[in-house]
């Protein structure tokens, strides 16, 4: 009879019957990232006239697409309570496959399918080791990080593959750099991907299983969820994202490189975290991840526009990551305090 009539959040972080507007705003998992994004954007809009121009904004979208695609996959993994450290390496490995196949003159759809499936295959290896051989995801993906990286170097002796003049490159270029009217094709693609990823989380039993497993794996197992299978597929999805990301990356760089952008993995995970998906699992979503990606992208853009050395970007995004997670921790603490009344 005494269900606490106190501040109650629902599982999406929305507030049901909050005592104050401030509390409500503070408790929303997206608020921190969204407000920060808007503040930074407003600041840049005032100080850098170029910032708010359409070409610049679209440039932000384009240059962050790889991060965005990988971050969608990473969001799934993190919601399920895991982490995939190998996604950047898997992207490089898939990119080499894609580049070599394109350069060898294969038709675009075949090369794209091969790259995406190869990424999925790498993810499946991770998933198998983690789910069925019960090796810690941290260990597996850390090992995979270096193995995939190695593979990318081995396959072409560390030499980059230029695809610019490959016959199959034109459609890739149109996909990555082309426009429909003023709108980049890749923006439409990203939106579609976001809706798909969000839809699967919200409207399927698979999506629901991810949250359940991340929240309490044993409870999920005891209630009949095939935890092994779901975890296997989560890593397949992360690999699939890497494969897809590699296509976009090769398209943007017009070459496949075995060199991995050293900040890529960190940026992907930072975007997921800043977007409010908790590393403890069971909470979060792709909408937040999108905000996280945009936030980091806008910061990077702002630094570039302001003429700040790119050497500083790591400082800024790393600092922001720690700050955002601290803010998230404070939010949880606040919530817990409010709930811990009575007994």
């Amino acid at each position: 009879m005494t269900a606490p009539s106190i501040a109650q959040t629902d599982s999406h972080g929305r507030y049901a019957g909050s005592p104050s507007l401030l509390g409500r705003v503070l408790q929303n998992r997206y608020t921190g990232a969204l407000v920060s994004l808007l503040l930074v954007a407003a600041f840049l809009a005032l100080t850098q006239p170029v910032f708010l121009t359409w070409p610049n904004l679209m440039n932000i979208v384009k240059s962050n697409t790889v991060v965005f695609i990988l971050a969608l996959g990473a969001t799934y993994v993190v919601i399920a309570g895991g982490i995939d450290l190998s996604v950047a390496s898997a992207t490089a490995a898939s990119a080499m496959i894609f580049g070599l196949l394109l350069a060898a003159g294969l038709a675009t759809p075949v090369a794209v399918a091969a790259a995406v499936l190869f990424g999925a295959f790498l993810g499946a290896m991770n998933g198998f080791l983690i789910s069925y051989l019960k090796i810690s995801f941290f260990v597996v993906t850390l090992g995979a990080l270096s193995m995939f990286q190695s593979f990318a170097l081995i396959i072409n002796d560390g030499v980059s593959v230029s695809v610019f003049s490959a016959p199959g490159f034109a459609p890739v270029n149109a996909f990555v750099n082309g426009n429909v009217g003023p709108v980049p094709v890749i923006l439409i693609f990203n939106i579609a991907l976001l809706l798909l990823a969000g839809g699967v989380l919200r409207y399927t039993t698979f999506g629901r299983s991810l949250y359940a497993i991340g929240a309490n794996m044993e409870a999920a197992r005891l209630n009949g969820i095939d935890v092994k299978r779901v975890m296997f597929f989560v890593f397949v999805i992360a690999g699939l994202a890497a494969g897809l990301g590699s296509v976009v990356q090769v398209g943007r760089l017009t070459s496949a490189s075995a060199e991995i952008d050293p900040t890529l993995l960190m940026t992907v995970l930072a975007a997921v975290l800043i977007g409010g998906t908790a590393f403890t699992g069971g909470e979060g979503g792709v909408f937040g991840t999108m905000i996280g990606v945009l936030f980091l992208g806008v910061i990077q853009n702002g630094l570039t526009l302001s003429g700040v050395s790119s050497f500083w970007q790591g400082m800024v995004s790393g600092g922001i990551l720690i700050f955002a997670v601290w803010l998230g921790g404070m939010r949880q603490l606040l919530r817990r305090r409010r709930q811990s009344t009575g007994s």
Binding site: S11, Y211, A212, A215, N216, A219, A278, G282, E283
Partner: peptide, 9 residues
Amino acid sequence: ASALLLVRS
């Protein structure tokens, strides 16, 4: 430990 999804609805 084995029944509740504490962070879920």
